[in-house]
Amino acid sequence: MLYLNLFLQGLAQGSIYALIAVGLTLVYGLLRILHVAHAGLFALGAYISVTVTNATGSFPLAVLAAVAITGLAGMAIYRLLYEPILDRPPFVALIASIGLFIAMEEAFRLAFGPYGLSYAVPPNMETITFGGLFLSRAQILLMVVAALLLGGLGLLTERTRTGVAWRATVTDPPMAQSFGIDIVRVRYLSFFIGSALAAVAGVMISLINNLVEPTMGSVPSYKALAIIVLGGLGSVKGTLVAALALGVIEAFGTIYLGNLLDRDAIAFAFLILVLMLRPHGLFGAR
């Protein structure tokens, strides 16, 4: 039963990772940019959710605002920061992104204070016990939402014209363009969807912890990079598997390796191990 519980906790954590990392993969697949500031958008989503809920009392409105504003912020980052430096070596965008992320964390701290914010009316988070298993309501909600959104994204990329255009642009941008696909629109769309998903992850974390802090993005940002590398940079399916696997491995690792390494180190030890065996990640093809 302990194993199953650990497994479920791992899956819940993995769902958060998945929601964040998918956006990163979308960006990397299109632009080959390691978008560290993505985790800043995750924190932005959480902050909007808490402040709007506390101001208006309506949680659904807050979620809507979080998703819309964060999505637009993602598009703005593409337009103002990445587009002008696309033809530079990859580390240029990476460092610019790290700079933006540091600035965003600081901006949250200055705007909302260093101690974080909570919902004025705490969300219902009682733990549900079910035949020896226990999960909080928020965790169950999180897993359902993640499954629905990521499943929906999967359908979108597999079944719709937009999805076909997206995949074509990832595979071969000039060819896609010559077939009449507006690749700039595809990029904007990817940034919007990816950032919106990060905002959803932020909202979910804010429900689970009932706390949003300026530094809440730092651990997910590096973890999400590890995940998209594990999944084979740019592969959406690989990213999902890697995110869930990492959540579960961390859950077990902290129990069994806890006195040797901390949680982050376990994640990165796994990453390095996989990369040494398969240099392009679990599902990377190159």
Partner: peptide
Amino acid sequence: TSLRVREDFLAITTMGVGFLFLGFVRK
């Protein structure tokens, strides 16, 4: 590791080494 992985993969691997060092020393 730089003989095995390149560029973005190397950036993340070395970042991982940093976290591994920190996680190890802390414990």
